[in-house]
Amino acid sequence: MHTFPVTVYYDETDLGAIVYHANYMKFIDRARADWVRSIGVDQNALREEGFVFVVHRIEADFLASARLEDRLTIRTAVKSVSRLRLVLDQKVYRGETCLFRALVTIALVSLDGKPRRLPEELTGLGELGALLTM
């Protein structure tokens, strides 16, 4: 389990005085970037070789609201991984309360959009590997 802290700032809130819903997607993306960096994947180097990660599918539940200055924690776990697809289970917590949950399917593609094998650092995360690494 990878954890990543986020504090809610003014620019992330909306008219409802809560975190604007699309910003949870940014929060969990930051957590993913931190996670892949921590297991040795260099996204800038991948980009120089002509490959980028893309989000293929998201299923998200907005369970409760976060407000200005809340200290949140994003928990990221591998749900499944194959040569081409990685599915992550990402949850945003305030204390013990889960505010947001998403299943996010990630792929690696070339800059012209062709699928590419995921880096070994990620495909090596089988069920056991995921438990050990995270």
Binding site: L15, G16, H21, V54, R57, I58, A60, F62, G113
Partner: peptide
């Protein structure tokens, strides 16, 4: 009028999203 609704203490919230990114 969402601004007037907000003044009355009512807002719209997104509860669930299922999204497919098909092409860039």
């Amino acid at each position: 009028d969402q601004v007037a609704l907000r003044r009355d203490g009512v807002v719209f919230a997104v509860h669930h999203i299922e999204a497919w990114f098909q092409a860039p």
